[in-house]
Nucleic acid binder design. Structure first.
Lengths: 189, 189
DNA sequence: GGCTCCATGTAAGGAGTTACATGATTCA
DNA sequence: TGAATCATGTAACTCCTTACATGGAGCC
């Protein structure tokens, strides 16, 4: 365990990329990007302009290694190093304290100003919020049918399950909010 | 209803600031910032470098008005306009379709790589995640004791309730994940 | 006189997105 | 031959954060 003196700061995205490099073995930067695009997870939306620089940073920090060009297309396979695995482990186990707070939910943000509109618009807001949340929930549930306990699909299943729990909780919360807003006199000038 | 031709794009933060200007009546930029600092909501962390430019944008777009200087300190009160209220309403009612998907949760992100570490480290991860989530939950519950249905505290209550629902769902999910990970052989090389 | 709070901002920098640029391979 | 896919990347832009700069008011 080397003392971490000049340890480069990595973003959440960098760790995600490192995780994918671990999970999918040595693979090309192009494949890493494709993996991010496949994923339905919100945190995983990513573009060439961030993936390529991220991989470069990981390689420079010695957490990943890029092999020599494999073919005429210029494909270059990237793999994780021992140092990279150690860093990934620390990211998982040593959680920063504030990481446990509730996430930023754009629907919840809007709900905090819901009495600024008329009674009818309030109902409309709740209704729309419920609809799009249900749609998102259906979407995730559809891709989570197979509840395999094999390690291949396990990680994806865990992630999807987290989304399902969150979305169901949001629906329950919206029901509660609807009840609270039944009072027509709440709208403020 | 004017057709929105040269309508300036606003960020979520801009709308939040506009919402606070609506909610707290005409107030100084300094007070807006203070309101953001008080708030325990994740989406509301904000700094001078973003609040002041945001208010300037709102004023330029005609959604807020800044009065003349009130005192020798240079205090300038900002209020919402009719156009601003209409824009706030549209933000609430016309939800963009993708807004309903599950949020980016750093704990869920980490969980998706949990089989990269040893059995013991996996248990450690789950345990830490549970602890900090419970702490965050206690924190929100503490400030949400008063379940007033008056419109003064209503909006804050709705927001806190949303956080509580999310955090409870995360705890349930973590219990499920713990069960799934009981199998010691899952760790991958 | 100095500390804290009120009140205004700017400058530098980090991180990520969109859009573009380039070229090989594969397949209909 | 042309379209889709594989594969690499950069440039400009946006948005936000950290840190700094400035000064008045109130109080001990």
């Amino acid at each position: 365990m080397v003392h971490a003196r000049g340890m480069i700061r990595l973003t959440e995205l960098d760790f995600c990329v490192l995780g994918v490099i671990w999970e999918c073995g040595p693979l090309s930067a192009y494949r890493v990007r494709a993996r991010f695009e496949e994923s339905n997870t919100a945190a995983w939306s990513s573009s060439a302009g961030s993936i390529y620089p991220s991989i470069r940073r990981l390689v420079r920090a010695g957490l990943a290694v890029a092999g020599s060009r494999q073919d005429e297309r210029g494909t270059r396979l990237v793999g994780i190093t021992a140092k990279g695995r150690e860093r990934l482990r620390a990211w998982l186990v040593d959680l920063p304290p504030k990481i446990g707070t509730a996430t930023a939910d754009p629907i919840r943000t809007r709900a905090q100003f819901v009495t600024s509109v008329s009674y009818e618009d309030r109902l409309r807001f709740i209704d729309n919020a419920r609809t799009i949340t249900r749609e998102a929930l259906n979407e995730v549930e559809k891709v989570t049918k197979v509840k395999s306990t094999g390690s291949d699909t396990m990680l994806e299943y865990i992630g999807n399950l987290g989304s399902i729990f969150e979305l169901r909780a949001r629906l329950q919360w919206l029901n509660r909010v609807a009840d609270l807003l039944k009072n027509k006199r709440l709208t403020r000038a």
